[in-house]
Simulated scan of single mutants.
Amino acid sequence: MNHGETAYGLWSLVALNSTVFILFAFSFFKPATARDWRSFGAFSAFIVALFVEMYGFPLTIYLMSGWLATRFPGLDLLTHDSGHLWSTLLGETGDPHFGVLHIASYVFLGYGFYLLSSAWHVLYHAQRQHSLATTGPYARVRHPQYLAFVLILLGFLLQWPTLLTLLMFPVLLVMYRRLAITEEKNMHKQFGETYDAYAQSIPRFIPRLGKARLTADAEPKK
């Protein structure tokens, strides 16, 4: 079989892309505690694993090569397009970069990084004022930064699924949930009934339809 231009063994691209996305997320998340570093470290491991398979060594393609060759005869497994497994499995034709799932992945990624940035801006000012963050994205969900990470991870999974990142994703979901619960306990100790009122009004991760309303006890004091 004559292969097209291979997209693998490009370790400089692995390092470059991993560094760019990790530093970009770091600039907004600003991990400070050991808990923050654990969650950010897990996110970083996901990013590295993703780009290693995207540009370095296609472990998922290698492990599935026998089945893929049987199911899709004539498929050139060493091209970049073949790495977009959702497109291949769904039988899509043409450039996978213009597929519905790939375009959806950009929506998830773009909104995820936007939410991460917006949440950090609100949290930064709240911490400087020693107050509870209840405005911006915090008026819709209690943990917008963790939600942002989940959206980013989903975006990457829609764009380039791998066995390792698919296995890591539910582990990260459990980790973020546990971290959120721990963070809520700390907020209760710090803000008491004010935080309890806020938590009763605002959902943890999934925003309600319509505009959430804070109770009077959870409104920021002026």
Rank of each mutant, 00 (worst) to 15 (best):
Met1Glu: 12
Met1Leu: 08
Asn2Phe: 09
Gly4Asn: 04
Glu5His: 12
Trp11Gly: 15
Val14Tyr: 01
Ala15Lys: 01
Leu16Gln: 06
Ser18Leu: 10
Phe21Leu: 11
Phe24Ser: 07
Ala25Lys: 03
Phe29Leu: 07
Asp36Trp: 06
Phe43Leu: 09
Ala45Arg: 01
Phe51Pro: 02
Leu59Asn: 03
Leu68Trp: 07
Phe72Glu: 00
Pro73Leu: 01
Gly74Met: 02
Asp76Ile: 02
Leu77Glu: 01
His80Val: 05
Asp81Ser: 13
Ser82Pro: 00
Leu85Pro: 06
Leu90Thr: 08
Phe98Val: 11
Ile103His: 03
Phe108Gly: 08
Gly110Asp: 14
Ala119Met: 03
His121Asn: 14
Tyr124Asn: 14
His125Ser: 11
Gln127Val: 03
His130Phe: 12
Leu132Ser: 05
Leu132Gln: 07
Pro137Tyr: 02
Tyr138Cys: 08
Tyr138Ala: 10
Tyr138Phe: 08
Ala139Ile: 03
Tyr146Asn: 15
Leu147Ile: 07
Ala148Asn: 02
Val150Phe: 08
Ile152Tyr: 00
Ile152Asp: 00
Leu153Cys: 05
Leu153Met: 09
Leu154Pro: 00
Leu154Val: 12
Gly155Arg: 00
Phe156Asp: 00
Leu158Tyr: 01
Gln159Tyr: 13
Leu167Cys: 11
Leu167Pro: 04
Val171Phe: 12
Val171Tyr: 06
Leu172Ala: 14
Leu173Asp: 14
Val174Glu: 07
Arg177Cys: 07
Arg178Asp: 06
Leu179Tyr: 12
Leu179Pro: 00
Thr182Val: 06
Glu183Pro: 13
Lys189Met: 12
Gly192Leu: 07
Gln200Glu: 14
Pro203Phe: 05
Pro203His: 07
Pro203Cys: 02
Phe205Leu: 05
Pro207Val: 04
Leu209Gly: 15
Arg213Val: 11
Thr215Ile: 03
Ala216Ile: 12
Pro220Gly: 02
Lys221Cys: 15
Lys221Val: 07
